[in-house]
Write a protein that binds this DNA or RNA. Structure first.
Lengths: 245, 245, 245, 245
DNA sequence: GATGAATGAGTGTTCATTCAT
DNA sequence: GATGAATGAACACTCATTCAT
């Protein structure tokens, strides 16, 4: 049971705690609404008024949580980047040959593309960001690309992947996956899982030295949608989250 | 001296002809400049002033050739779509099994992605177009997708391609190719031809029932960059080219 | 333990008294911070957030002491006006010929201009005030001007000042003095006293019927910086101090 | 008679000439309206809409002539500075002892203060300008101050002015004069000429080694209100006039 | 055909002020 | 008495588009 009710000596900072939680919840609500609108209509066609209206607040209220429109964009983007980062971290933590890791990545990445925040990684235009944030975004994208390439290179080294141009192979795979973010629709015929399964086969069958024996092993845990936002909370208290103009 | 004055028998329609040609040349110059800027900076960040400045004319002068900014966008997009259309027409005119046609398409499409107008097909946002033009654009995109799918289906039927989900396979291939339009840079390490060659192998090796014996056969004639714009000329004289707001 | 609880006979108004004193102290702290910022950056460029931040409180807290930004401005201005008023009162209380009184006023006024609150009289824009407060401010300014003029007129009458246009002479002198408020800097080469001494000579030497024999007599007591704010306290408890919008 | 009508071979650039003249006239009309409003209500209380409305144009039309509100402010200020500059140039071109030059300057400066553009020098807040323009403005102010001081110093050297602290004397005089810009009203009892005459006597009688014998010599030509704006025209064609953000 | 000038509509952002807690 | 959150009102600035010349 909530200690606020069981413990009469509940520390006085609890209200602050709950207030902060409320704040964080609202902040994320803004991001969820914003990312949806941005994907739906495109960043430049969405006005802050629309975002606010959909949240039943007024435009300036948004400025309690973000420094400006472009920061909202960046934070949406960041949410997506975190999804990918946690996926990669998990795969790196596990073991397996190059091809196995690559398959895991393809599968998880495909699923991420079916999430709003995930799609935002590839659908938002980094040129809409602050220079500083654009640099961060570009760096993150490069890291992801590098991971694809690294797995392929590792696979070639350990014999699980056929000799090929790792760079172009990575581009080909990442391109296919990124494109999901452009055509996937929640109400479409295919579920994210089905898409991920099929792409995992399709995109790696040409690369594998030997056909995969079983697919179950390629699956990772479902994408962590609740990636901890602790670090962010402080950073964005009132300053640009790791970002400045 | 100008033959119009020295040769009284000169056909009177020549000046008009040459004047029309001059007009068309300027029109295309606008499109070439525009597509470049749009790709470089993004449609919404480019002002008509910038386009005009780069052409050493003034903003209102653009309105002699186009009804508005979005029409310029559409015409750029159209130029790209024509490239693909002519590619497909050529492939369809030729013969070959499903896998052969698919390889031809992959190769040619990859090359198109390395051309400004080609990239515009996948980098421009159809929501920036007039409703009518957006419909045209979406239809064209669907036709392209359908072509990929048709070749795969044909390949499965004729035994040149392994049994698979044609729809997702087409998405996977098209996605890889479309992504080229996002990362290709003219001054990069890879030439369009090299990229096309590699992608042709990479994107079809998993699909082919048997490995390809030779690659030279997959090549089509170089993409026709000078697709006739005759039809367009009339249409856009002063009315929206097959389009209205 | 708090004496309110241990000593039942403690006069009940003491806490109120001390509380009120604390309130007044905070109020004045706000004014001191505000006047400084207003002079430093200009009224319109200073936000209440800045004022609050510098005081380590929050913006709405300011509204416990003042009705709004313009009231803060007015109170700052009032502090300065009181300085001048007390100066004039003192001079009037003393005796002396017109020129003597004028010299006293010039000297004291020059010193006031070197105080933040004093400078605010001439550097703040009365149009930033409420209509009502603006009227008060304008009236006060007129009274000051009238005093200069009165001393000059008196001096002409008593023969201590040469015949001249009293109005323009007053403007000339007041202008010189007011300008001090614009250029004086605390860390400059000249001390307020030195400036006052020099200006006393400079601004009156052309007027005096005969040169002054000694300067020490022109000095008044140092400007009373602790002019009682008692009357104000009640007035501004929560109502606008003699002012309403 | 206008050569456009008398000379049939009038060069084709005349239309441009007249168009440019029209442009310049409008530009100055904007400045005249703006300076009036700025003085009347204060820079921050004047919206560009008000300026535009009074000119019977719309707000964005102003941006054909100026880069922004602050540039309008700066250009107003500049007009005033030019008045003073031309005054000083004229005095420097003439001869005379220190006291004579000083008297000329006082007289002319007093008159400038009665002109809108002149008053703007001392009534506008340089902190409302771009950093770059603020620097320019501050430098100009310093130059003016230095001129006062230089004349006084010269006067002391040539024996026409009594020994005194030139710096403070300059401040005293300039202050008196600057203050005119704050209190002068076109419809007041005193004409600029009368004020100038009186201030010339008042502000210098204390300084002169011997009383002035005649006043007519202190007068300069009436302030050149038509200071050539040639240089400016080019500079502000579309770029900030000698200014950038 | 081309231009300078003007416009209308829109948008992000700021800030004094209020209010529930 | 103090705070975090929210709001309303305002404002400068941009830009595609039009029009008279």
């Amino acid at each position: 049971m909530d200690s606020r009710f069981t413990n009469p000596a509940a520390p006085p900072w609890l209200p602050f705690e709950s207030r902060r939680r409320a704040r964080d919840e609202k902040r994320e609500a803004v991001l969820r609404t914003a990312v949806q609108l941005f994907l739906e209509q495109g960043y430049h066609r969405v006005t802050l008024n629309e975002v606010a209206e959909r949240l039943n607040i007024t435009k300036p209220a948004l400025y309690n949580y973000f420094r400006g429109k472009d920061e909202i964009l960046f934070e949406c983007w960041s949410m997506g980047a975190e999804l990918v980062d946690s996926v990669i971290a998990e795969i790196d933590a596990g073991g397996g040959s190059g091809i196995v890791k690559l398959r895991k990545l393809v599968h998880a990445y495909a699923e991420v593309m079916a999430i709003d925040f995930g799609a935002s990684i590839v659908r938002f235009d980094v040129r809409d960001l602050t220079n500083r944030n654009a640099r961060i975004a570009r760096a993150a994208k490069k890291r992801i690309d590098a991971t694809f390439r690294a797995y392929i290179t590792a696979g070639i080294a350990d014999g699980s992947i056929k000799r090929c141009d790792a760079k172009l192979a990575a581009f080909a795979i990442a391109g296919s996956l990124n494109w999901i973010g452009h055509w996937y629709q929640r109400d479409g015929a295919l579920s994210p899982g089905e898409i991920a399964d099929e792409f995992t086969v399709r995109l790696t069958e040409g690369l594998a030295a030997k056909p995969a024996q079983g697919h179950t092993t390629t699956k990772t845990a479902p994408v962590a949608r609740t990636a901890t936002r602790e670090a962010r909370r402080k950073a964005t208290g009132k300053k640009r989250g790791g970002a400045s103009r």
